[in-house]
Simulated scan of single mutants.
Amino acid sequence: MTDVLSKKQRSYCMSRIRNKNTNPELLLRKALWSMGLRYRIKNKLPGKPDIIYPSLKVAIFIDGCFWHKCPKHFQLPKTRTSFWENKINGNVERDRKIETLLSSMGWLVLRFWEHEIRDTVQNCTQQIALALTNRGKHT
């Protein structure tokens, strides 16, 4: 099955996909800020976590359901399936390696799916607050 869009149209659509300041990121950051939980977003850590708490060594990743293969929502595209399967599986493998590396550096890594943030941002912020509290007790 061929793409319904021209190469130029598909290229434009793909260029509009953001990797920073996505809606789920902004929603979570706003919720954390309103709770008084200040964070950093700019960092040079492996994998570039979306949010970090440097003093407590907590790194938070917000994973898109498509790009990181959410078990609940991921659907493999019907065209170029082998390309997409390799691409997405590569992302998942890279996520695992980054998480292992950060953990070996003493960081606590938290991951949230975009749908978790969209559907239950309060649960996500509570998990983060609990992790920060627990890390604060052990530093």
Rank of each mutant, 00 (worst) to 15 (best):
M1D: 15
G36A: 05
R96Q: 11
L28T: 07
T100W: 11
E114M: 06
P24A: 06
S15T: 07
C124A: 14
L45V: 07
R16V: 12
L26N: 05
C70V: 04
D63S: 00
P77Y: 10
V4P: 05
G47F: 08
W107R: 02
I60W: 03
K97W: 06
T100L: 08
T139W: 13
R118P: 01
I62D: 10
M1T: 14
E114P: 05
R94Q: 10
K72E: 15
V4T: 08
F83D: 03
T120K: 10
W84N: 01
R38I: 08
W113I: 09
N23S: 12
T133P: 00
Q75P: 02
R80L: 05
T79S: 06
W33F: 14
E25Y: 06
I98W: 12
W107T: 13
L108D: 00
L28E: 04
E99K: 08
C65Y: 05
M35G: 00
K30N: 12
K44S: 08
Y12E: 10
K97I: 13
L26Q: 07
V92S: 03
K30C: 03
D3E: 15
S11K: 05
K48M: 06
E114C: 02
K78C: 02
S103E: 13
K69G: 03
V109L: 02
L27N: 09
T79V: 13
K42V: 11
Q9D: 04
R40W: 14
K72F: 02
T79I: 15
S104E: 14
L132K: 03
I62P: 07
A131W: 05
L32S: 09
L56P: 09
G106T: 06
K30Y: 08
R18T: 15
E116L: 12
K20I: 02
K42I: 04
C13P: 00
H138P: 14
K20T: 13
A129M: 12
V4Q: 10
D95K: 00
F83G: 11
K69Q: 12
D63G: 01
T81F: 00
H73A: 00
W84E: 00
N23H: 08
G47Q: 07
N43R: 03
Q122Y: 14
W107L: 09
I98V: 15
L108W: 03
S6I: 04
G47R: 12
K78Y: 10
G90F: 09
S55H: 12
R111Q: 04
L130A: 02
H68E: 11
K7G: 00
E116S: 13
I62M: 05
C124E: 05
T139I: 15
Y12S: 02
S34M: 09
R135G: 06
G47I: 11
P46K: 00
T120S: 11
T22N: 12
R16T: 13
I41G: 00
L26T: 08
M14R: 04
E116Y: 04
M14I: 05
E93Y: 13
T133K: 13
K42T: 12
T133C: 01
Y12N: 01
E116K: 15
I128M: 06
G47S: 10
R80C: 01
N86T: 15
P46F: 04
N43M: 07
M35L: 14
M1N: 12
F61V: 06
A31G: 07
D50P: 01
C65R: 02
G136T: 14
N91Q: 07
V4F: 11
R94K: 08
N89R: 07
P71D: 13
S104W: 13
G36C: 11
T79Q: 04
P46N: 09
S15K: 03
K87N: 09
W84P: 00
